[in-house]
Amino acid sequence: MASWPQWLHRLGSPREFYRLSGRALPWLAVAAAGVSMVGLVWGLAFAPPDARQGHSFRIAYLHVPVSFLALAGYYLMALAGAVGLVWRVKLAHMTLRAAARVGAAFTFVALLTGALWGKPTWGTYWVWDARITSMLILFFLYLGVIALGQAYRGERADRAAAVLALVGTVNVPIIYKSVDWWYTLHQPATIKLTGTTTMHPAMLHPLLVCIAGFYLFYALLLVLHVRAEILAGERRTRWVRELALGERG
């Protein structure tokens, strides 16, 4: 039985992570698909329609979990960057790259589903609302990390992107607070998204299942992207060559 730091050290090697994640992948995929399917079917087909918004509110079962992960994913990316900078772990930098891509995609889906939800509820696709604007800025922050990671080559790209991700973590709360303050200065929205009533349990429970399901789905996507990063980053090593040739032949 290997000790805890040894085990962590071994997991930190891209090759070992590739091997172990390959074994966990089917289980993760089944769990992600299962839980999100239960949540989505429950929410989309069986939860009661909203008193004010009718069936259009059901997009929340996609929109809310995706928005959660868009924000949480930024911190995961920054954490990976910090680990990579401090301990110079190659796998952490690969995780940062993967988290930037997956996070940007989730933020984009959050903006897109928000716009589609806005059309029937607010009568317009886009409102300069505090949370929407914050999400848009978050999307720009993700794109900045991705762009910086592509501007350099090799280790320098990884470390520069990690520094930018860390600078972003200080700025994300400031941006959120300032956009919130900016929005309250302006006229409040004429149509409120939700009333003063909190969510009914019959609607909330499927939403919680959806959030859990999308956390698993995010983990799955992240692992898949990290594995792709490992193969791309280690393409000159023998084990990747053997893997590629072995699978071909």
Partner: peptide, 22 residues
């Protein structure tokens, strides 16, 4: 961050502008 990047000028604007918004 962008000083050594080839054609870093526009990239610098892209990464600094979101930070400037507050």
């Amino acid at each position: 961050l962008t000083v050594a990047a080839p054609r870093g000028g526009l990239l610098l604007s892209l990464i600094a502008m979101p930070l400037y918004m507050p």
